[in-house]
């Protein structure tokens, strides 16, 4: 058990997969190894807060506990074009300035309600300067959540071996 605990501290389990940490002890870098994206620790923290606001902790774990922000980073890093990646990184950079301009507060200092309504404003406005960043982040966060080990084992059970098919199952 001790070994397992130690392993947990060495790696990040994002939803279910192991993500390798970035260089040990280097200050102000993202906590997982990224190939293309340049993200610092503050930006990573901001992303974690945004993702937590999208999928919050309730009586069940939310974005931060499930490391969904790391999953978002991993997917943007590996599965998106350079243009997407630029939009993403720029969005993360501009986020607080934008929010300050409209709400008068940074995201981290904003209340839960302020955060929610700000996110809803972006979602409703396709022309919002942060729309591209937000929709990409949201889509990946939802994907990571629904495909997380937690949800697939506890909430929407994924059956690897159904062993049956019924075309007339009663609703």
């Amino acid at each position: 058990m001790q070994r397992r605990t130690a392993l947990k501290q060495l790696f990040f389990i994002a939803g279910g997969i192991v993500l390798f940490p970035s260089c040990w002890g280097r200050a102000n870098k993202a906590s997982i190894a990224l190939r293309k994206l340049h993200i610092n620790a503050e930006q990573e923290n901001l992303l974690a807060e945004i993702v937590e606001s999208i999928i919050p902790e309730t009586d069940s774990p939310g974005g931060r506990t499930l490391h969904l922000h790391l999953f978002v980073l991993k997917m943007i890093d590996d599965c998106h074009s350079e243009e997407d990646q630029q939009v993403f990184v720029q969005g993360l950079k501009d986020w607080d300035q934008e929010m300050n301009d409209t709400v008068g507060k940074s995201f981290l200092l904003a209340s839960s309600d302020q955060r929610q309504s700000y996110l809803m404003d972006i979602e409703k406005d396709k022309a919002h300067p942060l729309s591209g960043f937000f929709m990409m982040t949201k889509r990946r966060a939802i994907q990571g959540y629904l495909n997380s080990a937690y949800v697939m084992k506890n909430k929407l059970i994924y059956e690897l071996v159904p062993g049956r098919y019924n075309g007339y199952a009663k609703v």
Binding site: G15, G16, I17, K74, M75, D78, C79, H80, S81, Q143, G144, N147, S148, A149, M152, Y158, L160
Partner: peptide, 17 residues
Amino acid sequence: TNMYPYEFEHRLEMPYE
């Protein structure tokens, strides 16, 4: 063959590269 969706690095999606 016996992997769950969450065990795939990119949840079955092929990387951009």
